[in-house]
Design a protein around this nucleic acid. Structure first.
Lengths: 201, 201
DNA sequence: CCCCAAATACCGTCTGGACGGTAGAAACCG
DNA sequence: CGGTTTCTACCGTCCAGACGGTATTTGGGG
């Protein structure tokens, strides 16, 4: 019974870690709690992850990989043309359940890393670099891609910190406005032409 | 010398707490570390804040108050008309130094609360409710105000998690795109009219 | 103005408990 | 029997908070 599936043990432990964070908060993410939730002893847990840093690193890596995969799938399913990357990212907002789950995964890993050792967040940084790289070659005027993803991550922040409730209504509202922004930028791309136009007060 | 200024002691302690978080991370936000940074003993610290929860609560409250104040000042300095609230918030992005400082303050308090006791974040939630309330009465089409603040908080998230560098260039890019969005929404407010128009793929 | 007492601000020490990590035994496997 | 996995027991450290004591200030009576 111990290795019910071959590779599943690692995932079982990482799931347990996320569950602990969700239920009891970052402060209670202890080796004992994770082990208990995964149905093993602390010693057994430490056999697979030599220390807490490695455990959290694995959480972050798994999360980053899933994110990347999710992103590529959405991109493949998005019609070609300018703003394809931006449009594919916005499509995530159409499925609140999936989005919420990704949010939770990401926040567990990110906050665990932040609390344990900020350097552990590196894999997520890497994913972000890729996203921004692809957005910069998306055929949109400067700044639009950055705005799209910033708005999406703002929603992420609200959910994660509980600053405000993020329901389908809010997600749809923001998504439609941003979609309009993207489409409008494709038709009239005079934003980039205005890159130097300082209208600061 | 101990009470150099009358009320300043409390602020000195809270400043110390923020400094500890900035320099050493949330995990090292201990009473001893705060006391040391504030130039007093742990016993002395506990004389003013009966326990760690109260200390962090004070951090959050101070941060929320400063935020509200900052917000009201910007609003007062912003020309009247539709989207005044949205425009006043965007003006924060024009001063990277001030914005960065606010970011740091906010993140220290928010993460300290998140790690210690998520319920302590309540004062920030309250500020957010006010902001969203005012944005909803801002004379903009539905969703625009929400998008504006979501984009700004996305930048906040990047800075706080270090997901990507947030410099003046990026801030200006996003600000200009969002400003354009706000102004465009004032001229042609057909976004709200399109609320039902589903163009999902 | 002085003296004494009460309040206030602060300090150093202690303790109980939690946590990360180690070590060796035990169970399971072929 | 050898190797792998898992367990139990334990150690050293750290931290929140309690406690008793000390310096400084305040205030009131003579």
């Amino acid at each position: 019974m111990q290795q019910s599936s071959f590779v599943a043990l690692r995932d079982r432990v990482l799931d347990a870690a996320e569950a602990v964070v969700v239920r009891q908060g970052i402060a209670n993410l202890t080796l004992e709690a994770v082990a208990a939730d995964a149905g093993m002893s602390k010693g057994g847990l430490l056999h697979h992850f030599p220390n807490k840093d490695k455990l959290i690193e694995a959480m972050v890596v798994r999360c980053a990989d899933q994110w990347r995969e999710h992103m590529n799938e959405a991109y493949a399913a998005t019609p070609e043309g300018p703003g394809r990357m931006a449009r594919s990212m916005l499509s995530h907002l159409k499925d609140p359940d999936s989005w919420t789950e990704q949010c939770q995964r990401g926040s567990c890993a990110a906050f665990a890393a932040l609390a344990q050792n900020p350097a552990l967040i590196q894999p997520m940084r890497a994913v972000y670099s890729e996203i921004r790289e692809r957005l910069s070659k998306d055929g949109l005027p400067e700044g639009v891609g950055e705005t799209v993803i910033a708005a999406m991550d703002g929603l992420w922040l609200y959910r994660v910190l509980g600053l405000t409730t993020v329901d389908k209504t809010l997600m749809d509202l923001v998504r439609k406005v941003v979609e309009r922004l993207v489409c409008g930028s494709i038709d009239t791309d005079d934003v980039s032409g205005n890159a130097d136009g300082r209208n600061d007060a």
